[in-house]
């Protein structure tokens, strides 16, 4: 997805994933998932992320909890994107996303809808919201190293 995506489209992406998240639920079969609770100490966000990893491939990803629009939408898109990807591919997406958030050079081709969060640095207080889900997934997959 090109970065020339205009503000209205970015807004639609965020609102869509906030109002109708695809992956905001607790999995039925909890025992086959690993999970991590990300409870922000500076804001209200308090989410739990669930990953099902089989042979180094993420076969399912979802989350649940209380969260703002930015954290809900960003986590939802991430969950959607990493399903079926290897841990290595997932790590690469997270790394490039963080580069984008922190205004470094990044590979936009791998980020798809996540480019909607390219403006986050303009509101420093939202960086936490835009990265809380990514930090959680990263911690979970780091356990597989």
């Amino acid at each position: 997805m090109p970065i020339s995506l205009d503000a209205n489209m970015m807004r639609e992406i965020i609102m869509d994933h906030y109002s109708h998240p695809l992956n905001k639920h607790v999995p039925n079969d909890l025992t086959s998932y690993e999970s991590i609770r990300m409870d922000s100490d500076t804001c209200i966000d308090d989410i739990t992320i669930y990953l099902k990893v089989e042979n180094d491939i993420i076969s399912d990803a979802c989350f649940d909890g209380v969260a703002c629009a930015i954290s809900t939408a960003s986590t939802d898109i991430l969950c959607e994107m990493i399903k079926g990807k290897t841990l290595k591919e997932t790590r690469y997406i997270i790394e490039q996303y963080e580069n984008m958030i922190f205004e470094k050079d990044f590979d936009e081709n791998c980020l798809d809808e996540l480019v909607a969060f390219v403006n986050t640095h303009k509101q420093a207080a939202r960086i936490k919201c835009a990265t809380i889900g990514f930090n959680g997934v990263e911690e979970l997959i780091d356990k597989h190293k």
Binding site: I44, A125, R126
Partner: peptide, 22 residues
């Protein structure tokens, strides 16, 4: 329809300091 934290962030962009909380 707006989560408190999103509203507080919006007000911040208008130079208004308020607190969102649970």
């Amino acid at each position: 329809g707006v989560f408190a934290q999103d509203e507080a962030s919006y007000l911040n962009s208008k130079n208004i300091c308020v607190r969102s909380g649970e």
